[in-house]
Amino acid sequence: MSTQQVVSPLPGTFYRRPSPESPPFKEDGDAVAVGDVIGLVEVMKNFQEVVAEVAGSAIRFVIEDSDAIMAGQLIAEIDP
């Protein structure tokens, strides 16, 4: 299987952690299971979870915590 891409379902602000004081949902290199929360997208103060739809041995984020994001923009890649 090839590397899978995770894209944002919505435009907004992307967060890698549940709150500013918390550790990230996933670090670069972490394994990922189907259904794992990998981040949040804030749309007009409304928070939507971004959930992994595939499992993988390692995740690699391509955007930073609290970056602006467009719908369809790449968030992370997951290695099989």
Binding site: L10, P11, G12, T13, V43, M44, K45, A68
Partner: peptide, 8 residues
Amino acid sequence: TVPPFYDS
């Protein structure tokens, strides 16, 4: 275009 970053 109403941006998504602020309150509604």
